[in-house]
Each structure stands twice: as C-alpha cells, then as structure tokens.
C-alpha cells in the first residue's frame, strides 16, 4: 500500500470540508500513515469467499404508515440556526456571482 502524503491529507481535507492548517497537515500525515499501516492488515483475511457485513441487524426498508403526526414547529426547527430570515435557514452564497 502507498504511504499517505501531506498533499494527500490536504486533498482529503478539502473533500471532507476541513480547512486544515499547515501544522495540522504535517502532524496528521505522519499519524495517518502509521494508522493506515496498522489497519491495512484487514486485507490478510478478507478472502473472496467472505461476504461483507455492513450492519449487525438484517433489516431492510423499515416502513411506517404514511400518516400526519406532530413534528417540530418552524420556530423550534430554526431555534439553533446560526442565521435565519422569513422562517428559513439563511446561508452564505452557494453559487458564484455570475
């Protein structure tokens, strides 16, 4: 397996929406390289014939009747919002200027 570089950590940080500092990139790159080296051993026993388990319970599509029931009021739902306007979450711009 290839080692994990500082540039790779910066790329992963961007994918994960983390504005990592230069110090963090240096620090994490070494640590993550060690961790990945240690966990890579899972491939030793993961044969073709072993099915994966994603969840301890064999549940699929648990449904409930589609009926109206009480839920949070708009005021409650917005109560933790960093910014709001006209009963909506107010967010920074999501599209460019033009």
């Amino acid at each position: 397996m290839p080692g994990i570089t500082r540039e790779e950590v910066a790329h992963l940080g961007r994918l994960a929406r983390l504005e990592l500092s230069g110090d963090e990139l240096d620090h994490f790159a070494g640590q993550l390289d060690d961790i990945i080296g240690a966990v890579a051993r899972v491939s030793e026993v993961a044969g073709e014939d072993v099915p994966p388990t994603s969840h301890p319970l064999p549940l699929t599509n648990v449904m409930r009747p589609d009926t109206v029931r009480p839920s949070l009021t708009p005021q409650q739902a917005l109560s933790g919002a960093p910014a709001q306007e006209q009963q909506r979450f107010k967010v920074p711009q999501i599209l460019g200027e033009d």
Binding site: M1, I4, E8, V9, L12, G13, L15, A16, L18, F28, L32, I35, I36, V39, A40, V42, S43, V45, A46, G47, V50, P51, P52, T53, S54
Partner: peptide, 25 residues
C-alpha cells in the same frame, strides 16, 4: 474524518472499508 474519507475513497474502498466489512463477518 480524514481517515474515513480516505478509506471510502475510490480506489481504496475495497482494500480498506470492504475488507473491514468482511472481517466483521
């Protein structure tokens, strides 16, 4: 978060997350 993003990224998914799920079995 970075470790998980790495383990789930294309090209590494099978070797890491996929293998870990097999170990779970």
């Amino acid at each position: 978060i970075i470790l998980g993003t790495y383990a789930l990224s294309s090209g590494y998914y099978d070797a890491y997350y996929g293998s870990a799920q097999k170990v779970r079995t």
